[in-house]
């Protein structure tokens, strides 16, 4: 699953991403297309047992792959 949060004002990207991962089934991942490093997100992901990895994206994009910490 992919989510586009570029251009959203804080805290909407944060709320959108956490809302989506809550609905994902086991083994599913979420690719986030962001325009900045979402620094507050990582602690919240850890709290919910999720991990983030930065992956290659378009120029100016901050792309993350989120998955459960198994």
């Amino acid at each position: 699953m992919h989510v586009e949060v570029r251009g959203l004002a804080p805290p909407n990207p944060f709320v959108t991403i956490i809302g989506l991962i809550e609905r994902l089934g086991p083994g599913q991942t979420l690719t986030v297309h962001h325009d900045r490093d979402p620094v507050p997100l990582y602690a919240e992901l850890a709290e919910r047992g999720w991990l983030a990895e930065r992956i290659a994206g378009e120029p100016g994009e901050f792309r993350l792959l989120l998955g459960r910490d198994v």
Partner: peptide, 11 residues
């Protein structure tokens, strides 16, 4: 998933 050096990118 992430390795130590890719996690968080550049904060």
């Amino acid at each position: 998933m992430a390795t130590a050096d890719t996690f968080l990118g550049s904060a």
